[in-house]
Write a protein that binds this DNA or RNA. Structure first.
Lengths: 192, 192
DNA sequence: CTTGCTAAAGCAACTTGGGTGCTTTAAGCT
DNA sequence: AGCTTAAAGCACCCAAGTTGCTTTAGCAAG
């Protein structure tokens, strides 16, 4: 039982790049995804070629985006959990407001479950660092359920967009941070 | 400038009911929305009729669902905020697991922004009662930002579904409730 | 570097599902 | 009962994804 031989180089690679470039160029976050036909046309490629290589336009856009050297949302390190979270809120807010950010989140929504989970699986470890540092500094206890706090933060941002159709105001995110900090403080300063 | 005369009775009403029934029957939360053509066929109605009355299949399903005497998620009243929230978590968890619940949330996601906001606008006042009672009982302070806490709760449930493609386990919801309660307690029991 | 195998691209249809112009039916009023 | 016209029916179109078959060229082996 031997592997099928792939042919990733030469023409295939050229097609890949052309399609990614066309997809990125055509994607306008404002409304709706570009059609397969339009992408194929702009890339000077047959639509069947695009169709057979990527299961859906969403998946294609996701890959096209991932292919770019992505300027990730930076993980802040200010020396204080509150300020780290506030900095993160600002940059993620800016990102979600930007065209490409609006793009990514629209694409993320329509991705198959497996790819969604993969996305967060690579994102969460980076975010955990913020709390890990706070634990090192002794700001919060070591047994803090970090992912729960990360969930709350992400969930609120994305739920506003997807569920309510509005961008969560930065001021609201700050309030959310205070809520989280109260909870973290409540864990060991108060009873239990 | 007089109003156009509507004709909601007779045939129109019959069509409406037939289409709603067909839409509900055809909708299987598992995967994808039923097509306009299929709904029209099952309702013994022309697709153009369906098309001209409802802007999208999502909107139709939403209306069809709303048309049903909906067994709303009950608002618990146990005498304690923690138990109220836990009861709410259980019923909402049961609802989101059920076929019709999975249906509603899939439809909700694809609704135009205005309708999303309308949905939550009618839902939030009901949920606020839980916190209002807690305030009356003196469990939490009157200046609590109730909607912030409601947001966190809803956001976490829906974000898990939409953003990560998984149903948030009930145990996780319980942990979330404890987080919220710590935060509420931290607000006035501790410093500030 | 030539040759052979075949993955991957090209091409040209088909299919499905939404959308639209025009016709026909019947709701609601007098 | 008769009239007006909203709303349903019908037939057709068009866009976009999908598929069968042909052609090109990547990549080893000789």
């Amino acid at each position: 039982m031997q592997e099928k031989k792939r042919r990733p180089g030469g023409r295939s690679a050229a097609v890949r790049d052309a399609v990614f470039a066309a997809a990125r160029a055509l994607f306008v976050p404002g409304e709706g995804l570009p059609t397969l036909a339009k992408i194929a046309l702009d890339a000077n490629v047959q639509k069947s070629t695009v169709y057979r290589r990527w299961p859906t336009v969403e998946a294609l856009l996701h890959e096209a985006h991932a292919d770019q050297p992505q300027r990730a949302i930076p993980i802040p390190d200010t020396g204080s959990l509150r300020e780290d979270l506030r900095a993160l809120a600002r940059s993620s807010h800016r990102y979600l407001s930007s065209p490409e950010g609006r793009g990514l989140r629209a694409v993320l929504l329509n991705l198959p479950d497996a790819e969604k989970q993969a996305y967060w699986a690579q994102r969460y470890p980076k975010l955990r660092v913020i709390y890990a540092r706070a634990i090192e500094r002794g700001e919060i206890t070591g047994d803090t359920d970090v992912d729960l706090y990360l969930d709350v933060f992400n969930a609120s941002s994305y739920f506003a967009l997807w569920g309510k159709g509005e961008l969560l105001p930065l001021s609201r995110k700050y309030q959310l941070i205070e809520l989280l900090l109260r909870s973290l403080a409540g864990g060991h300063k108060c009873s239990g």
